[in-house]
């Protein structure tokens, strides 16, 4: 463990908590893409299949458990409890166009052709594009509540910090995982224009308005 990965994991945890609190407190999931939340639930489910079979550390097990429970709780809140506030008119991204290519790619490019490893690889590829429906929704509505932009900033920062973690691990431990690194770069690049808007607008107290 290193500071980059620890802060990255905490930023990830913060993002998930911000989202759950936003939906629970405002009793609304307006401006949030349910499709992205479904993809995240799939990401954690397929990545943490070894939750009960492989023990890395108490921290690792607890965090995996929290991510899985929180992602399913968010999907439940959006599609069941606060279903009436779900913006299905704008949340129209076809997630099958993400699921199928990621699955095929995970069968072609992986470290080891076993169920666990292919599922882990699939989750890595899927996570890199899982935010697309959310970014698509924000671009369609042209704006985002500030709490939603804080959620996106924390979520985007987590993988950006993981990039630093991988640089550190390569230098300090001669350890690198090319599949995770390439996907992590793609994932972080997808946030770039959002990061720009967040830093130039939201941090100045303005609303996140996308140029029409």
């Amino acid at each position: 463990m290193n500071i980059f990965r620890l802060v990255g994991d905490l930023s990830h945890l913060l993002a998930i908590i911000i989202l759950l609190l936003k939906i629970w407190k405002t009793r609304s999931c307006a401006g949030i893409s349910g499709k992205s939340q479904i993809l995240f639930a799939v990401v954690y489910t397929t990545r943490y299949l070894d939750l009960l079979t492989t023990y890395v550390s108490a921290y690792n097990t607890v965090m995996k458990f929290v991510f899985i429970v929180a992602s399913y709780a968010t999907v439940y809140l959006m599609y069941v409890k606060f279903r009436a506030t779900y913006d299905h008119n704008h949340d129209t991204f076809r997630i099958e166009f993400l699921l199928v290519p990621c699955f095929i790619l995970s069968l072609l490019i992986n470290h080891e052709f076993t169920v666990l490893e292919v599922m882990w690889t699939f989750s890595i590829y899927l996570e890199s594009v899982a935010i697309l429906p959310q970014l698509f929704l924000v671009s369609k509505t042209g704006e985002a509540e500030s709490i939603t932009s804080h959620y996106l900033f924390a979520l985007g920062s987590y993988r950006a910090l993981y990039l630093l973690n991988w640089v550190y691990r390569y230098m300090a431990e001669d350890h690198y995982e090319l599949i995770a690194i390439v996907s992590g770069v793609v994932q972080t690049v997808l946030y770039c224009d959002f990061f720009y808007l967040y830093i130039t607008k939201v941090l100045k107290g303005k609303k996140l308005q996308l140029p029409a």
């Binding site: 990965r5 994991d9 990830h12 070894d50 492989t54 890395v56 690792n60 965090m63 995996k64 991510f67 470290h111 080891e112 882990w120 993981y162 973690n165 001669d174 350890h175 690198y176 995982e177 995770a180």
Partner: peptide
């Protein structure tokens, strides 16, 4: 370098 057999990252 050896491929990590278990993924120790979240």
């Amino acid at each position: 370098h050896p491929e990590p057999d278990t993924h120790d990252e979240l």
